[in-house]
Amino acid sequence: MTAELRCVPPEAMGFDPSGWNLVTALAGQLCAEDVTPVFALQVVHTQRTTGPLLFESPAADASLKVTSDPIFLVASLTKPILAMGVVQLAERGLLALNDRVVDFIPEFSGADRRGITVRHLLTHTSGLPDMLPDNRELRREQAPLSRFISGTCEVPLDFPPGRGVQYQSMGYALLGEIISRVSGQPYDEYLRDALFAPLGMHDTALGAPESWWHPQDGEPPRVERIVGIRVPPEQEGGDDWNWNSRYWRSFGAPWGGLLSTPADLAIFCQTMLQGGQYGYTRVLSPAAVAQATRNQLDAYHDLSEADRRTRGWGFGWRMNWAAHSAAFCDLLGPAAYGHWGATGTLFWIDPARELAAILLTTQPLERGRSHLTRLSNAIVAALAD
């Protein structure tokens, strides 16, 4: 058995007090200067955790204020978690990662895409685009996921599968559909039953279910705890389809619709650190976790050597691209892995240090710079043991 997380003071986790004070000062400064309306931070180290630390901008609009126990739309942090659901199906013998996508989704046909495999989708090597050309129009129409799937089945590839690496959210739309068709459950329910519920992640859902809007037990609707995001210019005026809309909060996009808390994500990070087990509960095998969290691009001989070496992908997990502007942290080693989210979120895991950090904001990421990288540097530097 692996121990469940225990909340302890940072110094009991091995953090130098002055270094940890710098971490909290930097986090508080982000809100004091209104860089982000809300910031939640939680760190995990050797089966211990700080618990969630919350910061709030005094200048934030009332609609962006935080509750005492906030839930965040974590955007693309969804991808590695969904990917672990796919890997779990592989563990159970229900699919193999080199199976062709068309064998699960027959409408995903055509000579150019018949060779695309589940592995290609997991590693962003399928040739699919990130988003569909009519992505915004679909969202404005409040289209169901089936419209995104049918569009992905028809959209031209940007390169033949395995010949390049390109971030592709639409590949994760297909992975969600594969989970549904293979498991016989909607992908959101499968992840709930196979991962979230067993791990005790009770405030996590891939799309807010009806019970979050209309609870039957007299409790306040859980959706009232979802923190509003300071939407980017291209979403302004889209109150019926943007990140803060009921449509998008309920949609459960397989590529970016996860709703969760720092505490729940800390449990998931600890599960990964412990080889797929949390307390008495095992949801993944050590072998699956080991494969999912190492660079898988070495298997593709047609990729450039530079891509394979410096911009690695596991199964859904991105390795820390040290020389890239969006590195998780300048002080993490090559075994670290994690993911960014467009809503201003980041989590990363360093197995060498038994260390993980969850950093959730409500300020969309800016290209080319991130205050979260600087804060991650301070977290790692503060660890004294």
Rank of each mutant, 00 (worst) to 15 (best):
Q216S: 14
T152C: 12
Y172Q: 06
R139T: 10
V74D: 09
T117V: 13
V231A: 13
R6D: 12
L5S: 05
A266E: 07
M1N: 04
V43N: 10
G218Y: 14
D130C: 10
A40L: 04
R311V: 00
T123I: 08
N377K: 11
D298V: 15
R100F: 00
L191R: 00
G238A: 08
Y278S: 03
L145T: 04
Q88S: 14
L5W: 06
A299R: 15
A111N: 12
Y190N: 13
L199E: 07
E33F: 01
E11N: 13
H324A: 08
V8A: 09
G162M: 02
L77D: 06
L199K: 12
D385F: 05
F328E: 09
E234C: 10
I267Y: 02
A75T: 08
I226L: 11
Y190Q: 10
Q88C: 12
G333S: 08
D69P: 07
A335K: 12
L145D: 01
D307F: 00
P9R: 05
N98L: 13
V231H: 11
D240M: 11
V35R: 10
I105V: 00
S211V: 11
P233F: 10
V87C: 14
L122A: 03
R374D: 00
E354T: 02
C31N: 03
V283Q: 07
L122P: 01
F15I: 00
Y190A: 10
W348G: 11
E137T: 15
M1K: 00
W243R: 03
Y337N: 05
G238W: 02
A59M: 01
P232C: 05
D217E: 13
V231T: 15
F196K: 04
L297R: 10
E154V: 05
D103N: 15
D350M: 03
G184S: 00
L64F: 04
F72C: 06
A288F: 10
R294Q: 01
F104Q: 06
D34V: 07
S57H: 05
G115F: 01
L132N: 06
I71A: 03
E56T: 05
A3K: 08
D298F: 15
L346Y: 05
S211Q: 14
L346A: 04
